[in-house]
Amino acid sequence: MQITVTVNGDEHTADVEPRLLLVHFLRDKLGLTGTHWGCDTSNCGVCVVWLDGTPVKSCTVLAVMADGHTVRTVEGLADGAALDPVQEGFVRCHGLQCGFCTPGMMMTARWLLDHNPDPSEDEIREAISGQSCRCTGYENIVRSVRWAASRGTEVSAS
């Protein structure tokens, strides 16, 4: 069936099977491979994107469910060449090693800071508790988000 999804502000129309998952639509149909595909069981959280402004695990959302709705992926975080403070925080605080979990972590972190500009360490850990990182032990991810929070609230809402 034909669907139209607004992704990072751009409308995309495509013919898809109803069983196509949103994560594969983004990666394979639109070439937006920043969203990663991991456990396929909504446990690991590497596929987190925003659907209508809310983080969801895109391996457990059908692409057809996004028809007529808006999606924001990690490709939509930066404003041109200017990184989102969350991205800059991950760079400065070594919030990643292998980088596999990073896009999902950053999408959840951006959402957290939009709703709670000065989160405590516990609040950050709670927010990302449905997302696995096998490299950092989460310590530097939490620091990265704190860095973005302390950097101020130039929040990019799209």
């Binding site: 809310t54 983080p55 969801v56 695990k57 457990t60 959840t108 927010a127 508790s129 449905g130 997302q131």
Partner: peptide, 9 residues
């Protein structure tokens, strides 16, 4: 129940 991102959905 599950985690915050799953609870969003």
């Amino acid at each position: 129940i599950a985690d915050p991102v799953v609870r969003n959905r």
